[in-house]
Amino acid sequence: MSTTSKSRAFPTHIVVFLAPAVIVYTLFMIYPLIDSLRLSFFATGPDNKEYFVGLQNYVKLFTDSNYAPRFWGALKNNIVFFLVHMLVQNPIGLLLAALLASGGWGRKFYRTVLFMPTVLSFVIIGFIWNLILSPLWGVAESILKAVGLGALFRPWLGLESTALVTISLISVWQFVGIPMILFYAALIGIPEELIEAARVDGATGWQVFWRIKFPLILPTVGIVGILTFVGNFNAFDLIYTIKGALAGPNFSTDIMGTLFYRTFFGQQLQLGNPTMGATVAAMMFLIILSGVLIYMFLWQRRVQTVEM
């Protein structure tokens, strides 16, 4: 190869390699996203034509006595849904990853088993948990009875006070494998020398974890956090399969995804309203966007990836 270019030529190859991704991404992601945002500024008139109405749909979403309680209710429920994941799913994921990374018998087996629910379909997860928790045929009640706690059993999925947390925990069960694998990959990437050095200096296992390992996997903590945030505010499937689009009882499990679905596609006798649906979708986009921006500017800039 004797190519020694004299002048900097136009990098055609870059264009070629980028073109497929740029074209596909623009056509199937950016264009629909912008068109959906555009739609949220329109409303359908009585003659089935769309008219530009400015911010009217947003005003309606925030103030109308029909839409506003649903929107704020869905947002509140979505925050609860997210907090349960942050407080339960991610710490458990970290704990499991730490246990797996510490080695020992059956590590590969447990790694696979714990990750398995993640690859199952939502429909299967919803069906299985409906059966497990069913007050008629479920095993949950018999298990509780076997340990003498039968009186604690409630139809958790059907009660307004517990349905949302129950579904959140089912989702945690399903997705705990993802933070686990990410933390696990980060933990086994830590050089053995550092840990040995700490041990030589007299650090206990607890100290090694919190003083050496945890600071080194902080970037992964951020990634897991933002993945959870984006995933939770886009969630829809599990609630739809377990509770349907009306997200009962009495809207207690209604989150942004189900609100969007119900508004956009309609439900039973309620006809779909594409423009209000696009408004809800735009709000979901803004919420997720602001979350991602906070992560990028407040977290990612402070946390330094340690190169070793």
Binding site: N66, L159, G248, P249, Q268, L269
Partner: peptide
């Protein structure tokens, strides 16, 4: 059932809540 909120959906919601005893 032609307007919003949809009467049929609302009847589902409140009737279930009445039987559940939360309304």
């Amino acid at each position: 059932s032609r307007g919003e909120p949809n009467l049929e959906n609302e009847l589902w919601r409140v009737s279930a809540a009445v039987i559940n005893g939360t309304m």
